[in-house]
Simulated assay, not measured.
Amino acid sequence: MTPVGPHPAVADTRRAVREALSDLPPHALILTACSGGADSLALAAALAFEAPRAGLRAGLLTVDHQLQPGSHTRATTVKALAESMGLTPAEILTVQVGKEGGPEAAARQARYTALDKAAERLGASAVLLGHTRDDQAETVLLGLARGSGPRSLSGMAARTGRYRRPLLHLPRQTTVAACRAQNLTPWDDPHNDDPRYTRVRVRRTVLPVLESELGPGVAEALARTAALAREDADALDEWAESAFQNCALSDIGASVKLMVAELEKVPAAVRKRVLRRAAIAAGCPSGALSATHVLAVDRLITHWRGQKAVDLPGGLSAVRRYGTLIIAISPIA
């Protein structure tokens, strides 16, 4: 009699994790972030299965944002489940969520800060995140709505530093099916149904309308667009870094000087990346530096009429003097 293999959804999640771990050295510690939802729960189960077979150690981190009644109880349940799967260490990371940037951004910042600190403390080689293809599609739509350009449209990367997203090519229905097949009961976060959150409105309203009006496969198409946009954005970023090195006269602390003549030689898409890179190098907060700021600085190159300095976030200014663009702390002497 032919042995019966795992459910197809379970096989898909295990295969995705196996591929994500393939380049790691023996005995490395891999952590997975788990909220208890279907996506991260399926990921945790796949890691628990695959890590020992690859000669790796595996643990789990769950973040208690303290934003809902019973959040600590939920975190304790996830921790106990992790230990039953053989995921050790299993830790609860309790965080204080601020208000800067809105509730979603503040929670995200607190979560990643906690994950970073835990990964450093435990010596983890990688941290797995349970984002799926549906999450990618939502991210692309949000980028479109903001008009943020190709980097935003490229969505989430499969790998960013220590973070890896093995399930990024799988639909959410696969993780739900994988949990069901393994008798795992996901936790349904009430925030995932709260229309006050932009991402929830995209998930519950915008994507279903697009699927209804344009036909099935919209999420998959958006994820594919993200992959293509990321390839283009990576190439442009590499070109911009080279251009920055060619035109930089100085890159020291809170003062960056660039040769205007060199900036004029590169295409607008590359030049604007160079200007953004220069502003951040001078001390401008990246999260506060908008496309409007960069465009205003770009006009000092493309539409020079002797105009005054451009104010930038972080108390910086950009000014053009004698063929040199200077970005520094205001006022520029």
Rank of each mutant, 00 (worst) to 15 (best):
G123K: 05
G323S: 02
L24Y: 08
S255L: 15
R146Y: 02
D134M: 09
S154G: 12
Q245Y: 08
R201T: 14
G155H: 01
K79F: 01
T174E: 04
V127A: 07
L170N: 08
L258R: 01
A333I: 12
V206R: 00
R151Y: 04
A119L: 07
L142C: 08
L129N: 05
F49D: 14
V127S: 05
S212P: 00
P267R: 05
A126V: 12
L144Q: 04
N183I: 00
T174P: 00
Y322I: 10
G37Q: 01
G287V: 12
E213K: 15
S250T: 15
R224Y: 00
E120G: 00
L228A: 14
S84F: 01
L144P: 03
T292H: 13
A282F: 07
A33H: 10
L128M: 06
S255Q: 15
L67M: 15
V140I: 03
S152F: 10
V4M: 12
T2D: 11
R121D: 05
R15D: 09
L153S: 04
G287Y: 09
R133A: 13
M259A: 15
R320Q: 09
A28Y: 02
L210H: 11
C284K: 00
T32I: 10
I326H: 09
E50V: 14
L214A: 14
G70K: 02
A281S: 10
A16S: 03
P150I: 15
R151Q: 13
R277A: 08
A42I: 12
L144R: 10
M1P: 06
H7Q: 03
A177L: 00
K79V: 12
R151D: 06
K117G: 02
M156V: 14
A44T: 02
A42E: 02
G314N: 02
R201E: 07
K117Y: 02
C247P: 01
K308Q: 12
R180W: 05
G315P: 06
S330C: 08
A80N: 10
T175I: 02
D135V: 06
H65F: 13
L21R: 01
S242Q: 14
S317M: 11
R320L: 03
V17L: 09
G143A: 13
R305A: 11
A278P: 01
A240R: 01
D234L: 10
L295A: 15
T13E: 01
A282Q: 01
Q182Y: 00
R108G: 13
E213Y: 12
L258A: 04
Y322L: 12
D64K: 09
G215I: 05
L21Y: 03
P150H: 06
A145N: 08
V270T: 07
G102F: 08
T225P: 00
A16H: 10
R146D: 06
H169A: 15
K99L: 11
A110H: 00
G323L: 04
P190V: 14
A114S: 11
E241T: 13
R14P: 00
I252A: 14
P331F: 06
